[in-house]
Write a protein that binds this DNA or RNA. Structure first.
Length: 234
RNA sequence: CGUGCAUAGUGG
């Protein structure tokens, strides 16, 4: 039983979804599959997101049957799988029916709306989270900032920035990049640079964001100059 | 009962 889980997980690690699933379907150890194994199976679906939706549904059925929806990791991963495999409707359904929605669940769903080109819905959900959900964290903020940018919500984004500062999330790489991009997309190049300059670490994404804005504005000189300062440019 | 493993975020 230890081994059946390890076997499935190792097949998952190698990306062999069908082999892993055949164990899940045929085996007498059916009752011994644990929550972490279900998560691994779902992860492989995400890796093969272009054609894994039917497999995700199959795994979902198992999970439902075994009562593993009560496991947070499993539930959250399931929402993510549906979103990533292209079924926003299913993701939504699972999200709404989950026994517990933690900050991770909310963040996944917000990001799902955003990814599917529904920023208004993403922002609405964020507002609902404010009212009835857990406190947003750095993951949530990194997901909501692009939403504010795409909706042109400069004011709200700036308020969120203040909140981020207060919580010390400005140092998070993803949040920092999202902030630079937010200001850049809102046409506030000054604040974009301010955040960029304050960053404790700048990665490829940070540089790309800023260089791109300069190009888009037609400031070729500045763009090239920045590019020249970039540490690891390839 | 204990242990190990397993879930979300930024630009193009």
């Amino acid at each position: 039983n230890f081994n059946i889980n390890n076997d499935i997980r190792s097949l998952c690690r190698q990306g062999h979804l069908k082999e892993a699933l055949s164990i899940l379907n045929n085996n007498a150890h059916y009752n011994s599959i644990d929550s972490s194994t279900y998560v691994s199976l779902l992860q492989v679906c995400i890796q093969n997101k272009s054609n894994a939706l039917p497999y995700a549904k199959l795994i979902h059925a198992h999970i439902h049957l075994k009562g593993f929806m009560f496991n947070k990791s499993v539930g959250n991963t399931l929402v993510n799988v549906y979103a990533k495999c292209g079924s926003l409707a299913e993701a939504q359904k699972v999200f709404e029916k989950m026994p517990y929605r933690d900050v991770c669940s909310w963040s996944i769903m917000i990001s799902a709306y955003s990814t599917h080109g529904l920023p208004k819905e993403a922002l609405e959900l964020f507002h609902q989270m404010r009212k009835i959900g857990p406190k947003p964290n750095h993951f949530t903020f990194a997901s909501i900032l692009p939403v504010c940018a795409s909706l042109g919500c400069l004011e709200e984004g700036m308020q969120i920035h203040e909140e981020i500062k207060g919580l010390g999330f400005e140092r998070d790489q993803f949040v920092g990049n999202a902030l630079v991009d937010f200001y850049a997309k809102c046409g506030n190049l000054e604040d974009a640079c301010k955040v960029f300059d304050k960053m404790p670490r700048r990665d490829k994404v940070s540089w790309t964001i800023l260089i791109r804005v300069y190009f888009q504005k037609g400031c070729i000189r500045e763009a090239l100059e920045l590019f020249g300062k970039m540490p690891q440019r390839d």
